[in-house]
Each structure stands twice: as C-alpha cells, then as structure tokens.
C-alpha cells in the first residue's frame, strides 16, 4: 500500500487535536453542546483518518484493546451509572451534581451523567473500531 506523504503529515497534525477536541466535547456535554455521542464520533473520525493513512495495522497498534471489550466496558459503565442512582435512593439514571474547589482549575462542576456519557463515548469509538476491523481488513495485502 502506498502512503501519501501529504496525508501522513496532515494526519499527524490533525489526529491529536481531534482526540483532544473529542475529550473536550465529552466533558462539555450535559449543559453545553457536546456529549458522549458527539465526542465519540469525533474520536472515531480521528481513528478513521489514521486508518485511511496507515491501514488497519496502524489502528490496531494504536488501540490494543479488543473492540468487543471496549464496547462491553462502555455499556457496563453507562448501565452502572444508571443503577448507581438506585443505591442513593434516586430513580434510574437520575443525575447527581458535585462541585468542588480544585487547585489551579478553580471551581469544578461534575455530574454523574458524565460517566454515562463516557460509556457512550466508549461504545461509539468501539463500534467504529469494529467496523474498521471487520470491513477494513479484507482485501488488504497482508
């Protein structure tokens, strides 16, 4: 497979920024535009760019965890967040808010919905990784 220099350079420049932006979207979600799904899609798009550049081997070496494990972890995380609310006497998926003074960062607000969103993020990324694995590897010279 021939690699394009322009694409390679652009990928190197774009990839980390995109992943960072996806994390921003994940944390900004809930009360701002963003959230787990949007963040996950951006991260997945970054991985797809890597795939187009270097083929599935690059993506494989980048994410060592099996996509099924990742998918399962996301699903479990999202579910456990929902169930967690029961333990505190709330309704399923009821959101809790915490606020604390962190050094340097100032006042930080966190909601339990963040963990749910993180689960969704993992699911979306894992789904795209799975698509890349099952559809992207066939017909590629090994």
């Amino acid at each position: 497979m021939m690699r394009s220099t322009i694409l390679s350079t652009a990928t190197t420049a774009v990839f980390h920024t995109a992943v960072l932006f996806s994390l921003y979207l994940l944390f900004a979600g809930h009360n701002q535009p963003g959230g787990g799904f949007a963040g996950g899609l951006v991260a997945a798009a970054a991985l797809v760019v890597r795939y187009v550049d270097g083929g599935s081997e690059t993506v494989r070496s980048l994410v060592r965890i099996h996509p099924m494990t990742l998918l399962g972890s996301g699903l479990v995380l999202a579910n456990v967040t929902g169930i967690g609310a029961w333990l505190f006497g709330g309704a399923f998926l009821e959101s809790a808010k915490w606020q604390w003074d962190a050094p340097i960062l100032g006042v930080v607000k966190t909601t339990s919905a963040l963990f749910f969103d993180a689960g969704v993020y993992l699911v979306v990324v894992a789904l795209v990784l799975m698509v890349l694995r099952t559809l992207g590897e066939e017909g590629e010279p090994s």
């Binding site: 099996h66 494990t69 399962g72 699903l75």
Partner: peptide, 19 residues
Amino acid sequence: VALPVVLPLLAAGLSLILH
C-alpha cells in the same frame, strides 16, 4: 419495572467483555 430492561443490557456489556 426498570430491571427487565436494565439487567439484560448490563449483562450484554459484561458478556462482551468476556467474549
């Protein structure tokens, strides 16, 4: 009321991890 929906989903996640 929620358990019949939540439980299989949670188990599906665990099942994926244990693939």
